[in-house]
Amino acid sequence: MNCKNCKKELLEESDYCNKCGAKIIRNRLTPKILIQQVNEEFWTVDNKFALTFIALFKKPESVINGYINGTRKRYIGVIPYYALALTVLGFQYFLLQNVFVDFFTSQTNALLENLPENQEIPNFNNLLVESMDKMNDYISIVTSITVPFWALGTWLTFIDKSKHNYTEHLVINLYANAQILLITFVLIILFAIIGFSDFLTASLLTTPLVIGYTSYIFKRIHKISYFNALIRFLGAFFIYLIAFSIISILIVLVIVIYAFATGKF
């Protein structure tokens, strides 16, 4: 008998592969077995998702430094965890676009109400709204694009406090962003359920969560005071805003040029 994952030869009585650690599966899939596997992966107390989610609150340095230093069995790796968070984000926007429609469209309505009509470019406001809708359709990609800018900011502001390189700062920020996406999913859906009328305001209310929680992570990783970590992260936030704003302006310019070229203006 060979391991179905790494192909190593196994003893017949083996329950786990002694090379890759995979569990030996002998039975065909049935609804009962499928439910048991889902339960083992996501809902049991000792599953990796629960351990990772809880540890990123209680001792984030254990998860993040462990991954950076090569300890990657106990917790979910950074890429799978971030991918899971993006899946949850996609589900959030599916619910907002199809279930809590009034709550979701409030951001578009607020934008149209507060934007004066551009007399020189009459269709500019509509194009801007269309661009927002497109961004919502590709929200996972848009969200992922922001992470390198967060990493740039934290790498520059914490460069004297650790030996983490830029790639390792990417890991830190991927874990932090994934955790924030999971938390904000609960908050945004809760706001929608209780009838909170403004999606844009609800989204902005999560900004203190981003700043507060990520500062807490860097406090734990670098063993500095929370105030020190907060000040540094606010500096990182400022760098992120500058870098991302420049990229966003360039994207808008491309959209406008494309609109002129295709005759939408």
Rank of each mutant, 00 (worst) to 15 (best):
K58D: 01
L51C: 03
I79Y: 09
V99I: 15
N136E: 08
S14L: 04
N69T: 10
T108H: 05
E40G: 05
L95T: 12
K73T: 07
L10C: 08
V78N: 14
N69F: 06
I33H: 12
G66T: 07
G77Q: 07
Q119M: 12
N27M: 12
R26S: 09
F42N: 13
V63H: 04
N98H: 15
S14N: 13
D46Y: 12
L127Q: 06
T52R: 03
A55T: 15
F100H: 15
L86H: 06
I25D: 11
F124S: 12
Q119S: 13
T108L: 11
E41A: 14
A55C: 10
Y67I: 02
N109V: 09
D15M: 03
D137W: 03
L10T: 04
F103V: 04
V101H: 05
N125R: 02
T108G: 01
Q92E: 14
C17Y: 03
V101E: 10
Y81E: 00
A22S: 15
F100P: 05
K59M: 04
S131F: 02
P122Q: 08
A50S: 11
N27C: 05
G66N: 03
Y67M: 08
I24Q: 13
L51V: 13
Y93C: 10
L56D: 05
K48E: 10
R72A: 05
E113I: 08
V99R: 11
N125P: 01
G77F: 06
V45L: 15
E130S: 07
D137V: 04
Q97P: 04
I64K: 04
L95M: 15
T108I: 12
E40S: 13
R72D: 06
L127G: 11
L127D: 00
K19F: 15
P60K: 10
P122C: 09
L115P: 01
S14E: 13
C20Y: 08
I25A: 11
A55H: 07
T108W: 03
G21H: 04
G90D: 09
T30R: 14
L111H: 11
P116H: 06
A50H: 02
A85Q: 05
L51S: 13
T30K: 14
I76H: 01
R74S: 11
Q107H: 14
N65W: 00
M135C: 02
T52I: 08
V45N: 06
T71N: 08
D133C: 03
E12L: 11
T87I: 15
A22V: 15
I68Q: 06
F100C: 12
L112F: 02
K58N: 06
L128E: 04
I24L: 09
L11W: 01
N125W: 00
T30P: 11
E61H: 12
P60W: 05
V99H: 12
F103E: 04
F91L: 15
K19C: 09
I54M: 09
T105M: 02
A85R: 03
V101K: 14
D102I: 05
N18C: 01
Q107K: 12
Y82G: 02
K48M: 07
N109R: 09
T87E: 06
V63W: 13
F53A: 12
G21C: 08
L84V: 02
V101L: 09
S106H: 12
Y81K: 00
G77I: 09
F53I: 05
T52D: 02
Q97G: 15
Y75W: 03
G70D: 03
L115H: 04
F94H: 14
L51D: 11
K58I: 14
F104R: 10
F104A: 01
L10K: 08
D137P: 00
K23C: 13
L86D: 07
Y82Q: 01
R74I: 11
